[in-house]
Computed example of a mutant assay.
Amino acid sequence: MPDHPPHAFAHGLRRSTLHSGDYTITRLRQDLDTYAEFAQSESDDAYILMVKLRPPHTYELFVGGERRAHVREQAGQPGNLCLVYRQASVRLAVEAPFDMVEFAFPRRALEQAAAEPGQPATGLLRPPPPGTLDPAVAAVGSALLPALERPAQASPLFVSYMTLALGAHLLHAYGTGATPPVRGGLAPWQERRAKEILRAHLDGNVRIADIAAECRLSPGHFATSFKRSTGVSPTAWLARQRIDHARALLRRGDLTLSEIAAATGFTDQPHFTRAFSRLVGMSPGAWRRQQ
């Protein structure tokens, strides 16, 4: 089997990449109706997870030079995944146009997640058959698409939270250990400190690990405990704070929508308008006119 450099594709590949802690997240798109292949020649203690966003396509999976699967996927089934333990070289031969998100991460990232309360007591995964439909993984991949479109403007808080959520899901869905129960939330001082940090970073330019360290917790324990204490994730809580702050500025009436967008941590006015409309049910301009 010939060796190929990582992500060696036929002409027409579009690629964008994000990094979050131990995770590397890459969107790979090929619009041409042609054969393509790529390889990961590294042999290390790591996983590769690929989730398909665009149906249909057929692919063959080779691990360590041996053919492991020949998957023919049906139209209308975005969310099919392929999870591979990369202790040997991995090669994927793909037919027809495709659009997928690839997560590459060392096993130590799962070992750290497995040490959190409520997680299986092992970082080992039992990969499902290639082509398995997993809506939760598909949802994470789709949620990261805006960040992958503009990696330089991606919110570290959001991206780090999504990779934590992905690791927790993989452990629960495909982990090899039993899952103990989770109890309790944040202590009052931890909740206060976490909210202080989030309010000070309305643009989301802070990582879950940074807030967790201030609360003297691991990232996974913090994220789980924050949701138990507040009823929402840190990213959802921050989104509400940004909109509440935007409402206060809209009531003042002396700032333009672009100025309010910048003051509340949004990348631009359209981003602000979309987020405001989604949570409030109307545009910021319409809301201000009603005050």
Rank of each mutant, 00 (worst) to 15 (best):
Gly281Met: 12
Met282Arg: 11
Ala263Glu: 01
Ser258Gln: 15
Ala246Glu: 08
His245Asp: 09
Gln269His: 07
Ala246Asn: 11
Phe272Arg: 09
Gly265Trp: 00
Ala263His: 00
Trp237Tyr: 14
Phe266Gly: 02
Asp254Ala: 14
Gly281Asn: 07
Leu257Phe: 11
Arg274Lys: 13
Arg252Ser: 12
Ala275Val: 03
Arg251Tyr: 09
Met282Glu: 11
Ala261Pro: 00
Asp268Glu: 12
Gln241Tyr: 04
Leu257Asp: 09
Gly253Leu: 15
Gln241Ile: 04
Ala239Ser: 08
Gly281Arg: 02
Arg242Thr: 00
Phe266Val: 06
Arg274Val: 09
Ala263Val: 01
Gly281Asp: 10
Ala239Tyr: 01
Thr267Gln: 12
Arg240Asn: 09
Arg251Asn: 07
Phe266Pro: 04
Leu255Asn: 06
Thr264Phe: 00
Ala239Lys: 06
Val280Ser: 04
Ser258Val: 07
Ile243Met: 12
Pro270Gln: 13
Arg242Lys: 10
Val280Gly: 10
Ala275Thr: 04
Gln269Gly: 10
Met282Phe: 08
Ser258His: 07
Leu250Lys: 05
Gln269Val: 08
Ala236Leu: 09
Ala263Arg: 09
Arg274Cys: 00
Arg274Asn: 08
Leu250His: 05
Thr256Glu: 12
Asp254Asn: 14
Met282Ser: 12
Gly265Val: 11
Gly281Gln: 13
Val280Pro: 01
Leu249Thr: 03
Leu255Gly: 02
Ser277Met: 10
Ser233Ala: 13
Ala239Asn: 06
Gly253Ile: 12
Leu250Met: 11
Ala261Leu: 01
Gly281Ile: 10
Thr235Pro: 02
Phe276Thr: 02
Asp244Cys: 03
Ala262Asn: 08
Phe276Asp: 10
Ile243Asp: 04
Thr235Arg: 03
Arg278Asp: 04
Thr273Phe: 01
Arg274His: 11
Ala248Ile: 00
Ser258Leu: 05
